[in-house]
């Protein structure tokens, strides 16, 4: 399993070689090769149900690979469903990974409050998840993943439940954050634009069982990027075409 063989610090946070995985009789991942360098952001796009969340679980050590190897540094996971603890308020939910890592209550709460203030949720620090909107809950879950200083972040559709404006704001905030404090990020998203705005590379997956059908590099510093940049536009077109091709090939492949 991933966390058993840690790479030396400073090495690539994630190296996955020919990883395959079946759930029961269902092949979900089929020989995935994926590498994330230190501070590199890799966006993962693929058709719905192709196995993206499964791949993230493998990287986080929640599932074993059936074949191939996953070598990953301990990762912070932001799951697709927010999975906030209903009995903790927003602040304590964000502080949870710190508490589990042994940080004292006061310090952990202070850090959580800072993070909440950053995304305009400071006022809701003492609200429980059932008192927050879906978008707020997602931001809290996002902060919880950021709270620990892990070298690898696994984000599963982090902005999926947000409105367009908040989505853009948070995307910019994440871009700045990652430029200030680079970490390896594996970002699953349905949104091609988000992928090319945040990713250093975009990896396109085929329909289930997932294979890597293409990898696209995006030029330029993350926080300076704009949708209108020629390089961003070019990457977006390339990724979208690759995704369409992958889906079309998948359909054609079904007998």
């Amino acid at each position: 399993m991933s966390s058993d063989d840690l790479p030396a610090s400073g090495a690539a946070p994630l190296v996955a070689r020919s990883v395959s995985r079946s759930l029961g009789a269902l092949p979900v991942l089929d020989g995935i090769d994926l590498e994330i360098g230190p501070g590199e952001v890799v966006a993962l796009v693929g058709p719905s149900g192709c196995g993206k969340s499964t791949l993230l679980e493998l990287v986080c050590g929640l599932q074993p690979a059936d074949a191939g190897t996953v070598t990953a540094r301990p990762a912070a996971l932001m799951p697709q469903r927010d999975l906030l603890l209903p009995w903790l308020d927003a602040r304590d939910n964000v502080a949870l990974p710190l508490r589990i890592a042994g940080t004292g209550r006061k310090e952990a709460r202070g850090r959580a409050q800072e993070l909440l203030d950053h995304v305009d949720l400071g006022r809701f620090a003492r609200s429980r998840p059932d008192q927050l909107s879906g978008g707020m809950r997602q931001r809290v879950a996002f902060l919880r993943a950021l709270a620990t200083d892990r070298e690898l972040l696994c984000l599963d559709e982090p902005f999926g439940a947000l409105d367009a404006i908040t989505r853009e704001e948070l995307r910019a905030w994440l871009a700045r954050l990652l430029d200030e404090r680079p970490r390896g990020v594996l970002l699953v998203t349905h949104d091609v634009e988000e992928a090319v705005l945040l990713g250093d590379r975009v990896v396109v997956l085929s329909p289930r069982p997932a294979r890597v059908t293409g990898t696209f590099a995006v030029e330029g510093a993350r926080s300076g990027r704009d949708v209108a940049d020629p390089s961003v536009l070019a990457a977006r077109t390339a990724v979208r075409d690759a995704l369409h091709d992958a889906i079309a090939a998948g359909r054609g492949g079904i007998p």
């Binding site: 929640l62 301990p74 799951p79 589990i100």
Partner: peptide
């Protein structure tokens, strides 16, 4: 999924009890 998520945070059995099972 909750205990699984806490495991990625490195939670011990005791911590699972403290944060998930007792409050539930």
């Amino acid at each position: 999924e909750l205990p699984r998520l806490l495991r990625t945070m490195g939670a011990s059995r005791l911590q699972l009890l403290r944060w998930v099972e007792l409050p539930a």
